[in-house]
Design a protein around this nucleic acid. Sequence first.
RNA 1: GGUGAGAUAGUCAAGUGGCCAACGACGGUGGACUGUAAAUCCGCUCCCUACGGGUUCAGAGGUUCGAAUCCUCUUCUCACCA
Length: 399
Amino acid sequence: MLEKALKEIQRGSSEIIDNERIEKLLKAYFEEGKVYTVKAGFDPTAPDLHLGHTVLLQKLATFQKYGAKIQFLIGDFTAQIGDPTGKNVTRKTLSVSQIQENAKSYKEQVFKILDAEKTEVVFNSTWINALGASGMLSLTTTYNVARMLERDDFDKRYKSGTSISISEFIYPLLQGYDSVHLQSDIEIGGTDQKFNLLMGRHLQRAYEIGKEQSVLMMPILEGLDGVQKMSKSLNNYIGVADEPNEMFGKILSISDELMWRYYELLSAKSLDEISELKINVDNGSAHPKRVKEELAVEIIERFHSLKAAEEARLEFQRVHSESQIPTELDEFSIDAEVWIAKALVECKLSPSTSQARRDIKQGAVKINQEKVSDEQLQLLEGEYVLQVGKRKFAKLKVI
RNA sequence: GGUGAGAUAGUCAAGUGGCCAACGACGGUGGACUGUAAAUCCGCUCCCUACGGGUUCAGAGGUUCGAAUCCUCUUCUCACCA
């Protein structure tokens, strides 16, 4: 049992610091039912969760399975500074009301994965505000500038003469102080957070709270392109709030190679099951597309329902494999006969009439499944299903 | 504060008086091939009912028959020095 739990906890992680302590904590749980705490901090700047975030959330869920109480920390105070990690410019500060709003939508989304019973949502402004100027000052005496500058990103900025604000120096200290206040046993975060995570250990030692948190780091999930990290700003993400059909399409669009990565970090399947799948695909006894569909269904089920997932699968089949028209189309209506190019723009299938004409010229446009060749075509009264390329559809009523 | 370099389409990046709606790359998109994948190949990629017209090269003026290209000012970036 202990073995299994440990294996599950270690799964997918890129680095664990003080693994022995994690073992001890688990042992104490199994033998005496002793509860321990796992902290994870979230920046309330990005309210829309995507699968990249869920890698961490699922790890937390695993911990919950094995006795952990999760300290779900919303860094509402620290967000006012902005995490300098990986940044090469000073971040803008966020307004208090903005942070409040973001934090709220965070909470709404995370309990799809986490067990609310075993989760404590905390805001670090609570204790950091209470720290006061003298508390803050004594916090800063635990570390020095030279060591802070060892950080790669600070180092680069310092050497290149880019500004580093003093508040950014304080950021890691505050994050570490959170671990002091919360008396965390374990903290988990992305690999890019290593410096900040280690600061928790450092400060717990400095404040002599009698323990040093273990640190478990998870790799950063690649986005749909398979290269850059999943992020909203790169538009390569799968949002947990995405529609089932959209999720299905996005998951199916990832490369086979990336699929295994997603399996490892996102699926609830055991590693043994996954490696068996991989063997089957490699020797040709399983079709990679089927395997990918399975993953898609699993993920959609998690955020929607099994029913929605199966429907998405069927819909996908209809539209893409059998090149039929999707069941639900955006509908538009125009009250006079229109030129086809204008109609495409109206239905948001083309961004401009110029583009629409190009599409027609290239044979990309279909009306009721029939290819359009006449660029000058006028649409008379009636109902039409318009299509551009393989996946853009709309229904148009001309009155 | 001083000096120098620069600002070109979604991004990077050529172009330094007419052949420029502007090379190329990436991205995006359409087609072929497929498993709507990847890889590969081909087309398109400022707007406009278009063998034509309009608006672009940080912004504002100016020189010229003609400017992304030359001049002036402004704004912003970056580098070096203090």
